[in-house]
């Protein structure tokens, strides 16, 4: 492979690394932070299932991002991913919770503005609506699941130790589903912008099984996420959970399950096909923020418990991050594309 291709892909891989470092904590944070699951177990499970989710089910959300803006040259894709990664880095540095999904959408719009490509308003409206819908849905799911699960568990009279064992297994299973959903939903953020200018070609593993170029791109992106999980997520996992509301292991399980359901709903082409065949309205396949889904889920649990103990200040910060991230990414993308085009003489769009 040409070395320049790897250089251009590096920004996406960096974004993948940042996503792995930050978002694995949404899936396994409380489990690892509370000592219920060992970090190594969490990291292995998370990486494997993020990769599977990305390669098997990552196409749906990528298609939506493609509709928003089909960045058609590698240098353009590089700058969009780089602008998103820069926004993520900047927000993390200032201590604001950040969403890679919002950063990449901001960056794509930046590319659209720079290249003069009109932004499809219907797709944009779809994406914007999911940013609100995602935490709200997660809150609704977590409130319902919490009510359904915690009440009966209290009446089971299971021994404390037995319950602990079941909770551990439950946390790992929820982590499996959560990691798969994270890979399926968020791989578009990492390498989605490279799909229209994808340097990889399809190859046949067997006569019927083709490993497509897009899947190869997803594999690379998800490996970058895995590297982020192994190298940096432990620190985030150890601090997560106590920030917004202290959670018991069972409440943490509810939060992870709700988060995973929401991410899966926004990524599943299978579910979309079923809804379509029944003539029902479909759920848009959009990369949503894993962090915001978890925040929504935690708030759902807090509300069903009577709304005590929520750190409203933290919630305000999250809201601020919501608004600021896409603007920073968009502005930085326009600026970066200008430099790339005029200083480095790269074709940032066709």
């Amino acid at each position: 492979m040409d070395i320049t291709i790897l250089i251009f892909l590096s920004s996406g891989l960096f974004l993948g690394w940042a996503l792995g470092a930050n978002d694995a904590a949404n899936v396994f944070g409380t489990a690892v932070g509370s000592g219920m699951v060992r970090f190594t177990t969490a990291a292995i499970v998370c990486s494997v299932f993020v990769i599977l989710g990305a390669v098997i089910s990552g196409a749906g959300t990528t298609e939506t991002l493609g509709k928003l803006g089909a960045i058609n040259t590698l240098p353009g894709s590089f700058m969009a991913a780089f602008a998103a990664a820069f926004a993520v880095y900047l927000m993390t540095k200032t201590g604001l919770p950040v969403s890679t999904s919002q950063a990449i959408v901001g960056a794509i719009i930046g590319w659209n503005l720079f290249s003069g490509t009109p932004t499809e308003t219907k797709t944009l409206a779809n994406i914007l609506s999911t940013w609100v819908l995602c935490p709200v849905l997660a809150a609704v799911f977590s409130a319902i699941i919490y009510k359904l699960v915690v009440g009966p568990i209290r009446h089971t009279k299971l021994h404390l130790l037995r319950r602990d064992t079941y909770t551990r297994i439950g946390l790992i299973l929820a982590g499996v589903v959560g990691s798969y959903s994270l890979g399926a939903n968020n791989i578009a953020n990492v390498v989605g912008v490279f799909v229209p200018a994808n340097p990889f070609t399809d190859f046949n593993i067997t006569e019927t099984w083709v490993f497509s170029g897009t899947q190869q791109l997803f594999l690379l992106g998800s490996i970058a996420i895995g590297v982020g999980v192994f190298t940096y997520s432990k620190r985030v996992m150890m601090t997560v959970g106590s920030n917004l509301l202290p959670l018991s292991p069972i409440a943490a399980w509810v939060a992870v399950v709700s988060h995973s359901i929401v991410l899966f709903l926004f990524a599943s082409q299978g579910l979309e096909a079923i809804l379509q065949s029944q003539g029902l309205p479909t759920i848009p396949l959009v990369p949503v923020s894993s962090s915001q889904a978890v925040v929504g889920a935690v708030i759902g649990i807090a509300l069903i418990r009577g709304g005590r103990g929520i750190q409203w200040g933290v919630l305000g910060k999250i809201g601020l991050g919501w608004i600021v991230t896409p603007f920073i990414a968009c502005a930085f993308c326009v600026l970066g594309l200008y430099f790339l085009k005029n200083v480095f003489d790269q074709a940032v769009f066709n």
Binding site: S34, G35, M36, L160, L161, D164, T165, P249
Partner: peptide, 11 residues
Amino acid sequence: QTLIPESRGDV
């Protein structure tokens, strides 16, 4: 065996 990390101090 790192069991019941949340409650083992209490136990």
